[in-house]
Amino acid sequence: MSDELEQLVRGTLRRQAAEITQDSLRHHDIRPVRRSRVAPVLLVLACVVAVAVGSVLIYQGHTASPLGTPPGYVGYQWRLTEVATGEANTVVSQDIRATASFFPDGTVVLVDSVNALTGRYDGTATGFGVRGIGTTLALYDGRDPVRLAVVTAVDDLASGQHVDAAVLGETLTLRAAGRTLTFQQVGPVHPSDLRPGPSR
């Protein structure tokens, strides 16, 4: 019976195949590849979306991180090196201690060279906002224009307004209140950054 079944299947498949003859074929040559009109449009759209998403991620500091990971500035202390306004750029020398430390638990410590401001930062799509600031209460009665520019700029970061943040390599750029503050990475945050004191 097995042979009979095999013969039956073989015969049937071959009879069916034989129905297709050279003459009955629809094509007698290789037809050109069909090109979809939709594919190029989808490709362009995909590129636009990829560029947009990439820009947002880079601007947030997610330069190489997947969505859902912390922004690139978190976990590091950053030293302020320049304050730029529409009118002037102020280079901050290393002897002026002005830093921003972003702890993974949401604590931020801003040092404006005179006082240390401690509060919480909340990440947003393009940066962060600072709230609940407490500060040391030292006074500065000097006239150093660089120090005054630094104090004003850093204190503005703590004023509760939205701050745009971007990390590129070891450079952090913050924009708020018409100013652009440029920081250089010092290193990972350390518990001692939570206490005002001499610069590391």
Partner: peptide, 19 residues
């Protein structure tokens, strides 16, 4: 071509798809 169309026809079951 013809032999391949026959194989495809046996698998997919219709000539148009096979071609």
């Amino acid at each position: 071509y013809l032999a391949m169309v026959r194989i495809a026809y046996s698998v997919v079951g219709d000539r148009e798809s096979a071609e």
